[in-house]
C-alpha cells in the first residue's frame, strides 16, 4: 500500500502530490494541501459541509476517494475569488443577506449555489431549495441563504 502520485488541477493550478491510496479527497485537501476552507461535518456524505466542485459538479469530498480526481479539476471555496481578493458575486450576496451564522456550512453552500447557477442561471425558489438540499445549515438560516442565491442569480 505504497503512496501513489496524484496529479490534478486545484483552483486552476496544477498539483502533483504523493498520497496514500485510502485517503479521501477531503483529507488530501485539508491535511496534505492545507486548504482548510473545505469543512468536515458528518464525514458520511450527509451534510454537504465538505462540498467541492469536481469538473464543475458538486461532490461530497469526505466520501470521495482522492485517487479518483486524477486528471480532473477541483474547485474549493479558496478558488472562488478572482485572484485579487475580490469575492464572487454569490459570496457578496451571502454577506449582504446575512446568509451566514456560524459559517460552517457556508463554503459548501456557496459551492452548491455556484454549481446550481452555472447550470440554471435563473432558478425558481423551489429549484434553489432542491439544489441546496444536500447542504445542511444547523443554524437553520435557510431563508437568507435562499434569498442570497436568488439575488446572486439576478446579477
Amino acid at each position: 500500500m505504497g503512496k501513489q502520485t496524484l496529479s490534478f488541477t486545484l483552483n486552476g493550478e496544477p498539483i502533483q502530490i504523493e498520497v496514500e491510496p485510502h485517503l479521501t479527497l477531503l483529507q488530501v485537501l485539508r491535511d496534505k494541501l492545507e486548504f482548510t476552507g473545505t469543512k468536515e461535518g458528518c464525514g458520511m456524505g450527509e451534510c454537504g459541509a465538505c462540498t467541492v466542485l469536481l469538473n464543475g459538479k458538486t461532490v461530497n469530498s469526505c466520501i470521495f476517494p482522492a485517487l479518483e480526481v486524477e486528471g480532473k479539476s477541483v474547485t474549493t471555496i479558496e478558488g472562488l475569488t478572482d485572484g485579487q481578493g475580490n469575492l464572487h458575486s454569490i459570496q457578496k450576496a451571502f454577506i449582504e443577506y446575512g446568509a451566514i451564522q456560524c459559517g460552517f456550512c457556508t463554503p459548501g453552500m456557496v459551492l452548491s449555489a455556484k454549481a446550481l447557477l452555472d447550470e440554471n442561471t435563473k432558478p425558481t425558489e423551489e429549484e434553489i431549495r432542491h439544489g441546496i438540499a444536500g447542504n445542511l445549515c444547523r443554524c437553520t438560516g435557510y431563508l437568507q441563504i435562499i434569498q442570497a442565491i436568488k439575488e446572486a442569480s439576478e446579477q
Binding site: 456524505g45 454537504g48 454549481a115 446550481l116 444536500g134
Partner: peptide, 9 residues
C-alpha cells in the same frame, strides 16, 4: 435519491 452531491457520484 440523496442530494445533488450524491446523485453526481
Amino acid at each position: 435519491l440523496g442530494s445533488v452531491q450524491i446523485r453526481n457520484v
